[in-house]
Write a protein that binds this DNA or RNA. Structure first.
Lengths: 199, 199, 199, 199
DNA sequence: TATGAATGAGGTTTCATTCAT
DNA sequence: GATGAATGAAACCTCATTCAT
């Protein structure tokens, strides 16, 4: 039932998904929903909690960075991004909740989503910090928080647009593969628009 | 009344803002709302339409790019971004609707918001295209669409995080000024993490 | 609408009275109920509050006791009880809520009813206290609280049985008039079963 | 399970006690309830039936009145009341259902409770009748029904207030013992407020 | 222009009861 | 005997919208 609810949320948003929609799709009665979940809100929080765990696991799995040259760093970033984009693709309905449709929901849900992204962002912030200390990145007087802000914005934004396109369509498929995205984003992350993409 | 509605939407989201909230804040009666607007949805669409015009005007105003060196380009980008961040700051309530809280709303509203961002993105896409043709940017085999995707994601994301912080709080104030953000984003846009920020 | 609700409560009890019953009797829509009252509970509390005020006013009106002989006291008690029984008869629906049907309701309502009877009981307690001090009543070693407990129990109980009969029927009418009840209760109050009722 | 149900009813009232509450307290499943009882209502009726039998037995046990003087009568009344108050104390949860919380229940249950009290009242009525015939009580032109009404009201009311206090709290304990109550009520019953309580 | 009482469809949630295992 | 998942009717309540004044 959770899976069905997730799809409904993805397609119609939190508020526009009625319990009756979910149970109709699941082929059970209204009462059954309340046998499994205390309320609509509680169920959504479970959904987000589940999603957060998967997302964090993916980040942890992707982040195997051996210290070394900038090229090593770029490579390992590419590996992480590939994992991330692949995960996002395989969990579109979850991502639409986390990236977009949670916005219309109730405060408790918003908070849960924000925390998820904060956990996500922290992983990147730590990494940039470590890389700076190792002298692999130029020192930034505005500190690590600005850089991680830029970085996370970039990743969240590209993920969202790659998955759902400009219209936020759940069934949108980009012309680019997860690997291509990871390559392009990693390149941009390190070298910006000036980076030689052919290199 | 529009202004008040915008603030309500910004604070509570579209669905959680009731007509009765708006009119109570405005000090008028329910009926009066329906004398001015055909419906909640229509009013919101007006709000977005107004916002789109202002946003486009700001982009148009900021984009005065004289062809020249990459440094010229960076400079003019910085000017545009400064305008944008300043505009966003002065129109927080509008931006929260466009960037975040429109997500919970009805399809027509979502579409209007998407179109607004598409208009926004097109301006950047055209510019990158022209710059590539003039040989100011390395040629990218994945074309201009990937680059504008990255760029717009970066700008939208940083704007959102700068304005509302990690918790999406309407009253959040960043430690960075609009100018600082514009500088950092422009730098990152052109040179990525490797760009020497002290240069 | 309050009046209609009171009658419904009187006939069916709090829980067995649905909002739909009330509005159907009133000939309005469900929504209208919620225009006037915040909730079923809030409305019932208003009902009880209104009732308490009337009840207290009646007690105040009836209690004009000039110090004097025991016969004076009995007479003034009879006057008070007459007022009370007449009031109860004219407000049957209120009394059924206060005396009986409030029992099935929610905690807040129960509390409000309890407080009403406490206010009621205090009036009697004060009076017995004063009468004892003036030497009009034999001194009771168990103090005034036992006596007022007995007295209030007697009055509440007889009122309830006189109004609604053994079956708690709202439409029950006793064979005794309010005056007859007041006479009998006052007699019993002062002399018990041994009091010569013909005197 | 009946015992547990009785306690639940006593604490929360009939309607506010859910089957799920009862079975949770009993440590069995919902289905088990319906293996033992046909329905919530039927079970409650059983509860009341059981209670009625015990109550009647208590009255029967207490009522051993030898004809004689008024003092004999007062004494035997005191004995009966002592039995009654002791029984009530030992069966608080039953009494709260019979005296108070049955009010919110369904018609069939109300009727069963009313009948219980009628049975109860009849015992007293018969007794007063016999005492009047034997010339032990002054003749009352309003007949025996008024007197028994007063008497039963007094007893039910004092029992209720003694057991549960002004707030109808199941766990309330009066400062008076069952014997003290019986003494005071019997005194009041025969001599009213004028009775010399020290005699 | 402006009011505010009235509407009613539809939302989430409750809970006594059933039934296959 | 006992379970617990499943049911569905019906409850309370919400809120965008209407309309007589």
């Amino acid at each position: 039932m959770k899976k069905i609810a997730l799809e409904c949320f993805a397609r119609k948003g939190y508020h526009n998904t009625k319990i009756s929609d979910i149970v109709k799709s699941a082929g059970v009665s209204q009462g059954t929903f309340y046998w499994y979940f205390a309320s609509k809100e509680k169920m959504t929080l479970e959904l987000i909690q589940d999603g957060r765990e998967k997302l964090v696991a993916t980040v942890a799995k992707g982040y195997r960075r051996e210290a070394g040259t900038v090229t090593d760093m770029e490579l390992s970033t590419r590996r992480l991004l590939t994992e991330l984009f692949q995960f996002a693709e395989s969990e579109r309905h979850l991502m639409v909740l986390l990236l977009l449709k949670g916005q219309g929901a109730d405060p408790a849900i918003q908070t849960a989503i924000s925390q998820t992204w904060q956990t996500f962002g922290d992983a990147f912030k730590n990494n940039i910090g470590r890389a700076s200390e190792l002298g692999m990145l130029p020192v930034d007087p505005q500190g690590v928080s600005m850089r991680s802000l830029l970085l996370v914005s970039l990743i969240e934004g590209t993920m969202s647009k790659w998955l759902f396109g400009p219209e936020h369509d759940v069934d949108y498929r980009s012309e680019y593969s997860a690997e291509q995205m990871a390559y392009a984003v990693a390149k941009f992350e390190f070298y910006g628009l000036m980076g030689d993409p052919l290199e």
